[in-house]
Each structure stands twice: as C-alpha cells, then as structure tokens.
C-alpha cells in the first residue's frame, strides 16, 4: 500500500512538472482586427488574425485546444489534431486567420472578428473548460493596427518587475498596447514575429553603460561566491559540531569514558588511530626477524561488472 502511494505521488509530481511546459504556457499575443494592407494568407486574402505565443522553453502542441470569441461557447473552434504545424517551438508564434472559413485548413477559424465592436477572444485547453488565456480587444479598431502584449508572452507581473527595475518601461506603461506601422513609436505590427524587436542585448548594454571598468560585476559576483561558500561553511560547521558531539556520546556510552576523555577520542584524526594500531601490533605480535621485500604489483583484471549478476541484481533491502 505504501509503495503504491509513493508511486502515485511520484506520478502526480511528474505530471505537475510536465504541465509546466504544456498548453498552460501559451499566450494570446497579438490580434489584428481590420486587415486592409497587412499580412495575407496562402489564398492571397487579407483577413483578421490572432497570434498565439509559446512562452516556454519546450515545444508545445496546440492541437486539441479551443479558440473562441464567445464566452458562452468555449468549444467554438477546436484546433485540429494530426497537423505537425500545430507544434509551436520554444519562444515562437503561430497565427490563426479569423476569417470564418475553417474549410481552408487548420489555421482558418470558424468565426470572424467584429470590425466595429469589441472582440472577446479566449484560448481553452483540450478539456474545453480550462481557460488558458483570454483578452478583449476594445472597440474602435483602426485598419492595419494590431492590439498586442507590449512584449511577447508578458504578464502584468513581468511588466511591473520591468518598471520596478527602471528599465525602458515607466509607471503607467500598459501591458496591452496598439501596434501601428504609421506611428513612429517603435511599435510595429508583427504577425508571427516578436512584438518587441530587440536589436541590442539590454543586459550587455547596461553593463557597458554603468560598469565599464567591471568593478560592480567583481564586487557583486565575488559577494555571491563568498556568500554561497560561507553558507556551506556555516552549515557544515554546525553539522560537524553535531557529528563530533554525537560521537562523544557514542564513545561515552560504549566505554563509560568521562566527557573529557570521550571528547579527546572523537577529535582525533584517522592517522593517529592508525599509528596507535600499528604500535599495538608491533608490541603484541611477536615475530622473528623476517627478510621481506615490499613491492607494488600491478593487478590486472579482465572482469567487468556489467556482466556480473552480483552487481546487476541487488538484494531487496531488508525491512526492519
């Protein structure tokens, strides 16, 4: 029974771990409601599109999940199974055409978007009731202007952290923003591509600007290295003291020694015990003078534990 419980526990643990890289890491990333001169599909049509982003380091298969624009009907469009293109690589995107023509293939939805009013869009897991992500695109959309996350896959917590770290985002920055190629604010409509085009490595630039001499890095990193090893030192100082104390107690219990005598025994090194043992041996084992030669002989063994039953089959531990 206990073994069964442990097995189920391990299974649940593995399932929770695996879920971290499943559909739960998918995000609705960018939506274009009125597509006049933007991206076109393989049929040459310019239709509204919805971009989904995989915000995890593992490939995620979106097949079997549901996309909907109706809160009362989560299972409006099931993303078909059996299409290899539904696998989204890590940190990559996939695009669905909201043209109401699902007969055109996997990526054509059976609903279209409302070009005048607001649009509710949701992504549900394959069970049809677990909500993965949802967004409402406000009414009053302009042609060729998309609505998306300020950076791919970001959450409000991530934006708040970026604001706190005094990066390029300030108080009042919004998580969902408009992208328009005609406005010179660095935000472009980017179907199947990153919402924020990163043309520099922010971390490196930050170091070049604020720590050109490397003193900051040295102090910080050495601080971390010392802290890590200091922590280990403190823990093992404590563990060592406990180990020495318990060996005192064992010695006292076994031989009836006083506390001070036991303390002396527990703190001796192994080589001292070896020397004492050697001295006792010399004193008690009486031998004639022998002519012996001490040598080192290479031991050659063709034996391999891989083929040994002794090694491959361990005994079942004995329960006490």
């Amino acid at each position: 029974m206990r073994q069964r419980l442990i097995f189920i526990g391990l299974l649940l643990f593995a399932a929770i771990g695996a879920d971290a890289q499943r559909t739960s890491s998918l995000k609705i990333n960018e939506i274009l409601v009125i597509n006049q001169d933007n991206y076109q599909d393989d049929y040459g049509n310019k239709s509204p599109w919805i971009e989904i982003y995989n915000a995890s380091p593992g490939t995620v298969n979106i097949a079997g999940c549901y996309l909907t624009n109706d809160p009362s009907n989560p299972k409006k469009y099931m993303i078909p199974k059996g299409d290899v293109l539904t696998k989204i690589s890590p940190w990559q995107h996939i695009l669905f055409w909201a043209d109401g023509q699902h007969s055109r293939g996997t990526f054509h939805l059976n609903f279209a978007l409302d070009s005048i009013g607001e649009n509710y869009i949701a992504l549900y897991d394959s069970d049809g009731h677990t909500l993965i992500d949802e967004v409402t695109v406000p009414a009053g959309n302009l042609p060729n202007r998309s609505y998306g996350l300020v950076e791919d896959g970001w959450t409000q917590a991530k934006l708040d952290e970026a604001i706190r770290l005094n990066s390029r985002y300030k108080d009042g920055s919004q998580l969902w923003v408009y992208f328009d190629d005609t406005v010179a604010d660095g935000r472009y409509v980017t179907p199947s591509s990153n919402n924020k085009i990163l043309d520099t490595n922010e971390k490196i630039e930050n170091f070049k600007e604020n720590d050109a001499q490397g003193a900051g890095m040295t102090l910080t990193a050495m601080g971390v290295v010392f802290s890590g090893l200091l922590l280990l030192f403190l823990i093992f100082k404590l563990i060592g003291n406990i180990a020495v104390y318990s060996s005192h107690r064992r010695a006292m219990k076994a031989s009836g020694l006083s506390k001070e005598e036991a303390k002396g025994i527990a703190q001796q090194s192994g080589d001292m015990y070896a020397a004492i043992a050697m001295a006792i041996y010399e004193a008690t084992e009486l031998h004639d003078e022998e002519h012996t030669i001490l040598t080192i002989k290479r031991s050659v063994s063709s034996y391999s534990p891989w083929s040994s039953k002794i090694y491959t089959l361990r005994e079942t531990p004995i329960k006490k």
Binding site: V225, F226, G228, L229, L230, L232, F233, F236, K237
Partner: peptide, 13 residues
C-alpha cells in the same frame, strides 16, 4: 573540506 569547512573560503577567494 567537511572536516575543516573554513577552507571553503579559500576556494572562494
């Protein structure tokens, strides 16, 4: 290292 954990700090230095 375990018997004399203060030696860890030399590894850090």
């Amino acid at each position: 290292l375990i018997s004399n954990p203060k030696l860890m700090l030399i590894g850090a230095a």
